[in-house]
Design a protein around this nucleic acid. Structure first.
Length: 429
RNA sequence: GUGGGCGUAGUUCAGUCGGUAGAACACAGGAUUGUGACUCCUGAUGUCGUGGGUUCGAUCCCCAUCGUCCACCCCA
């Protein structure tokens, strides 16, 4: 036999024992977004490379070294999407969605980045994004954050022992950020001997990122660096204060992190991250902020926007780590039959139950085996009831019903006609 | 992209100072010839990640490669 082909590095299969978690999370989110008036948008997995270069920024790591870029047969450069905001904005502009007023959108799908895989970081990963276009005010930021908090609660992540922490900051406008940048570079140039290699490399390309460094030797330097807050324009300050007021009133807890910056160029004013301490180095499960200039820069009409993207892989990893969710049983009713009974009789019984009780999951054992083996399978299926069709039952035109979980209910024989009503009364749903 | 740890049964791992392997759980059968979850008994299963080197002989030592994990980096 030849060597089996393995999956691509950094990508993963979601197996039947895990898909229920994905589906549960997706269902909760879909319902929640609907509840807030956000509508789903779907866009391609492949876009022109230029879209990401201009939207995300040429000098970001994502564009410089993490994109899956290739030429199609006509030589056009295409890329697998590394994030969702850029294609979402492209779709918004191309389909002129703003013509019918502000847009509240969400999307979900795979993203691709050529990074070194590690826990909570894969080359294909699932991102869910929420974007609010056309509202410049802090109330839009607030709604996004309130929605986020409710989402964690509905997912079961609001436990006090393992909270998901919200950090917020304001990056101000491009002008105030520019003035701060000058001041920061000036400060860092004055302490060049204390900068590590990464910091030196980024001193002129992306100095704000230096504030994010985890290098313990640089923490003093970072702590004493000038703060962006002191360079903010009046409008950004007021926006930020109003947002905090709305969050306080809504009971959304947050910590201000004056050194929180984002790796994508398009953000301004509000930025935020939700972080867990239970995932190791890749603790950010959700990040986002305001990007008021992106739509115009991409060729659309000036349109303010705010949104976030969450990593579904990381979220599920966290939920699994904390043991928050229990798998649902596979079945409600399990049909056990004797070898001598015609399979056609069992099929007929199973189909009649599925017709009469469409909410119940009916599994018919098709693999034969002793009663012992069949009951073991019935038990493992998590079914509430085993319905038994043996030669005796067949001869008498009845079935036996055994409750697998409720031990107070004795096994009994019931006519086939009565069976659906009996099951319906004794099953919760 | 950089540094380090680890790849042995379906899973988690033990082991062989170089003589081709074990446990637990899981799975299957039985104790109980029509009854699961507890208990007991029995059983099957491994190209010891892949390729090459050293050796009479490599799962073990060496090299490469792939995968995985941790940190850096980056971000969701």
């Amino acid at each position: 036999m030849s060597q089996a082909i393995s999956r691509v590095r950094g990508m993963y299969d979601v197996l039947p024992d895990q898909t229920w978690q994905w589906q549960r999370a997706e269902n909760i989110m879909r319902r929640l977004f609907q509840q807030y008036g956000y509508r789903e948008i779907r866009f391609p997995i492949v876009e022109k490379t230029a879209l990401f270069c201009s939207a995300i920024g040429e000098v970001t790591d994502i564009v410089e070294k993490e994109m899956y870029t290739f030429s199609d047969r006509k030589g056009e450069s295409l890329s697998l999407r590394p994030e969702g905001t850029a294609p979402c904005v492209r779709a918004l502009i191309q389909n002129n969605l703003m013509a019918s007023g502000p847009q509240k959108l969400w999307y979900s799908g795979p993203m691709f980045r050529y990074e070194r895989p590690q826990k909570g970081r894969n080359r294909q990963f699932q991102q869910v994004g929420v974007e609010y276009f056309g509202n410049p005010g802090p109330q839009a930021d607030a709604e996004i954050l309130i929605l986020g908090q409710r989402l964690w609660k509905e997912l079961g992540l609001d436990a006090q022992a393992h909270p998901v922490r919200l950090e917020i900051n304001s990056l101000g406008t491009a002008e105030s950020r520019g003035r701060y940048r000058e001041a920061l570079i000036g400060y860092l140039e004055g302490h060049k001997d204390l900068l590590d290699e990464d910091a030196k490399r980024r001193l002129y390309s992306n100095p704000l990122r230096i504030l994010d460094s985890k290098n313990p030797l640089m923490q003093d330097l970072i702590a004493q660096a000038p703060l962006l807050r002191d360079f903010l324009d009046q409008e950004s300050l007021r926006h930020h204060e109003q947002l905090k007021h709305l969050l306080d009133a809504a009971g959304v807890e947050y910590v201000e992190n004056p050194r929180l910056v984002r790796g994508l160029d398009y953000y301004g004013k509000t930025v935020f991250e939700w972080i867990s301490d239970d995932l190791g180095a890749q603790g950010t499960i959700c990040g986002g902020g305001r990007y008021d200039t992106l739509v115009e820069r991409q060729g659309g009409k000036p349109t303010p926007a705010v949104g976030f993207a969450l990593g579904l892989d990381r979220l599920l990893l966290l939920i699994e780590t904390l043991g928050l969710w229990q798998a649902e049983p596979l079945a409600d009713i399990y049909l056990v039959s004797e070898a001598g009974v015609d399979a056609a009789e069992v099929f007929a019984l199973a189909e009649s139950l599925r017709t009469a009780l469409p909410q119940q999951r009916v599994i018919q054992n098709l693999e034969g085996g002793s009663f012992k083996a069949q009951f073991r399978k019935a038990d493992r299926s998590g079914a509430e009831f085993a319905v038994i069709l043996g030669e005796r039952e067949l001869a008498e035109g009845v079935v036996s019903v055994k409750a697998l979980k409720n031990r107070d209910l004795p096994q009994q024989q019931i006519s086939r006609k009565e069976l659906p009503r009996f099951l319906c009364e004794n099953l919760k749903k």
